[in-house]
Every structure is written in structure tokens, then in C-alpha cells.
Amino acid sequence: MYKIVTKTCLCSKIKSMEILAPHVAKNALAGQFVILKINKNGERIPLTIAGTKPNNGLVKIVFQEIGKTTTLLGSLKEGEFIEDFLGPLGKPTKIQKYGKVVAVAGGLGIAEIIPVISEFKKKKNFITTIIGAKSKEFIILKSELLKNSDSIFFTTNDGSYGIKGSVIDVLKKNIDINEIDVVYTVGPILMMKAVSDLTLKQNIKTIVSLNPIMIDGTGMCGSCRININNKIKFACIDGPEFDANSINWLEVISRLDTFKSQEKVSFDIIKKECKCQKNQKYKKEILE
């Protein structure tokens, strides 16, 4: 059992938790992830590690309530427990001095990119961060982003914060003005694909952090397989980061919705189950 030590609502649907898991906290590096299972009948889901406090044994995860498991996770309180928590998994980000690094993040990727840019910054890279969100509300962890970036751009779809538009517009302008050594991108799959479509035309080295369906996370089940240069690789042990140039995007995108209809069934059940309960909880949490 793994204790939820802190819980924070970053916005209405995105929450952050610190889980007590001392070994994971001690050995986790930027770019790695965990797999958790809430209870006996739960599924195993991967979540990127958004930070650690090794001295306190804490691992930070950030998640958006988009399905049954994440919604259930969001309903747990500080002091409650998660049954299973495995990590750190995957290869850590290769941190080196590139020079000019552009980090492009959207959605939950905003939280996931923080440990990565923080490590890149320690290696004296110049970090330009480009953040994309639906609206102002979804721009989370702003102070940490600012702290770890040398230059930062915020974009929102509706223009409620920063530049109105997408990360791609800003990235284009940056490419035109600056010499970029590497682009690192994490977030929604279509955003990552758009980023890499753009950067590959310009021959800019691009690293993407993929998030396919996983079960065991140790290389055994084969569900996270990715076609890399026509060879099968596993995101859980060979990734989750890959060179954007080598990815068969259409396949990756297609495989992500393998269980779409079943996921909807699951989600509908939990939505029904805790609709009233949840609404009350949200109100309470937001007031707090």
C-alpha cells in the first residue's frame, strides 16, 4: 500500500499527488514513469513522474480525470492509499549539453516536462519553453515552468492567456529566428506529431515522450510496442522517449484508441456512480 501524502487540485480536472514510495523517489530520474493500480479490481495505468522528494520518499504524479481510473484516483483523499505503485520505469532522459533546447508541452505534458527542463538547465542549456493549453485554467505549475526556463511562451486555444493559437505557431517563429539544437516534446499525441512534422522538415533533432497503452511496464506484455525504423520496440523498456524521426506516427495514434469503446463503458459507470458525490467534493476542494 502506498500512501497519498499530499493532494492538490491544479485545475478542475487536473490533480497532483505526492505518493510515499521511498525506493521510487530515490532512484527516479527525469523522463521516467510509474505504473499504478488503485485497488484489487483496478487496471494498471502508466503516469509520468512529475518530480520527486528523495529525502521525504515522495513521488509526484499529475493526472487528468479522463477515464475511470483517473477519476477514481482523483476521488481519493490525502492519507488514503493506492494498492500498487511500481517504478521508476523506462529509460531516463539523456541529459547532456545541447546548447539551445526548445521544450514544447501541452496538456499533462506541462507537468511532465518540468523535471526534464530542470535537468537540461543544470547542464547549462538555454531553455525555451513553449506551453499549449485549451484555456487559462489549464496552464498549470506556472511558477515551476518560469523557474526552469530561460525564455517562455504560453499559448491558449481561446486566447484567454498568452498568445492565442497553438504551440506550432510559436515554434515556427522560434525556428525562423534561432538556431535550435534540440526540440523535446511531451503532451497530446497530435501535438507531438505536429511538432515533429515541423522540426523534421528543418532537420532539427527532436525527442518525443510517448504514452501508449501499457500493462506490466517491464517489457513482458508487448502492448506498448512501437514501430521504430521498422523494428519493434517497447515504450516501457526501450522508451518512453524516442527520436521523432524514427516513429511511425499513424500506427502509434491508431493503437492508442484500441480500447476506446470499452474505456467509455468504464468511464460512464463511474461517472454515474459518483456524480453527486463528486460534484460535492469538487466544490469543497475548490473552496478549500
Binding site: 479490481n41 483496478g42 487496471e43 494498471r44 475511470k68 481510473t69 500493462i215 480500447f259 470499452q262 474505456e263 463503458v265 468504464s266 459507470i269
Partner: peptide
Amino acid sequence: NFPNVDTP
């Protein structure tokens, strides 16, 4: 046992 369990 799906959807009584969460793994589809």
C-alpha cells in the same frame, strides 16, 4: 469480468 474490473 470487465466492466466489473477495470482492465478491458
